[in-house]
Amino acid sequence: MAVLAAGALVWGLAAGPALADNIRDQQWALQAYKAATDVWPISQGDGVTVAVIDTGVYPDQQDLTGQVLPGADFSGNQTDGRVDDDGHGTGMASIIAGHGHGDQAGVMGLAPKAKILPVRVYLEDVGDVQAGPDFKFPEALRYAVDHGAKVVNMSFAGAMRTSPDDRAAVAYAVAHDVVLVAGTGNLGSVVSYPAAFPGVVAVGAIDRLGNVWDHSNYGPEVTLVAPGVGIYSAGITSDYRYATGTSDATAYVSAIAALVRSKYPALSAGQVIRRMITSAAAPPDHSKVPNDHYGYGIASPSKSLAPNPAVDDGPKDNPLLSRVESQGAPDTSSPVPVFQAASGGSGTPVWLYGAGGGVLVLIVLGVAVLIRRGTRRPVEAPAAYLPPPPPPFDGTGSP
Rank of each mutant, 00 (worst) to 15 (best):
D128I: 13
V129E: 05
V129A: 13
V129Y: 01
V129M: 06
V129P: 00
V129I: 13
Q130K: 09
A131I: 00
P133H: 04
D134A: 13
F135L: 15
K136P: 00
K136F: 00
F137H: 03
P138L: 12
E139L: 12
A140V: 06
L141G: 06
L141M: 14
L141D: 08
Y143F: 15
A144H: 06
A144K: 08
G148T: 07
G148Q: 08
K150P: 04
K150S: 15
V151W: 10
M154C: 03
F156E: 00
A157Q: 05
G158E: 07
G158D: 02
A159L: 14
M160C: 10
M160V: 12
T162H: 03
T162W: 05
S163Y: 04
S163A: 13
P164I: 05
P164Q: 10
P164R: 05
P164G: 01
P164T: 10
D165Y: 11
D165M: 10
R167I: 04
R167L: 07
R167D: 12
A168N: 14
A168D: 15
A168F: 04
A169S: 12
V170D: 04
Y172P: 09
Y172G: 10
A173D: 12
A173V: 11
V174G: 00
V174M: 07
V174E: 07
V174L: 15
A175T: 05
V178Q: 05
V178G: 11
V178T: 14
V179S: 07
V181Q: 07
V181N: 09
A182Y: 01
G183K: 11
T184E: 01
G185M: 09
G185V: 05
N186C: 05
L187T: 13
L187G: 13
L187F: 04
G188L: 10
S189C: 00
S189T: 07
V190A: 15
V191D: 01
V191T: 13
P194H: 08
P194D: 12
P194I: 13
P198C: 00
G199C: 08
G199V: 04
G199Q: 10
V200L: 11
V201M: 14
A202I: 06
A202W: 04
D207I: 04
D207F: 08
D207M: 13
R208G: 11
L209A: 09
L209Q: 15
G210D: 06
V212I: 11
V212A: 12
V212W: 07
W213E: 06
S216T: 14
Y218Q: 08
Y218I: 03
P220F: 07
P220K: 12
P220C: 11
P220R: 14
E221Y: 03
T223S: 15
T223V: 09
T223F: 02
V225L: 07
A226G: 02
P227F: 12
P227W: 00
P227T: 01
P227E: 07
G228A: 08
G228Q: 07
G228I: 14
G228N: 10
G230K: 03
I231D: 01
I231R: 06
S233Q: 08
S233I: 00
A234C: 02
G235L: 14
D239W: 03
D239E: 15
D239M: 06
Y240I: 12
Y240M: 05
R241A: 01
R241L: 09
Y242W: 14
Y242S: 02
Y242L: 14
A243R: 02
T244S: 15
T244E: 03
G245A: 08
G245D: 05
G245W: 10
D248K: 01
D248A: 14
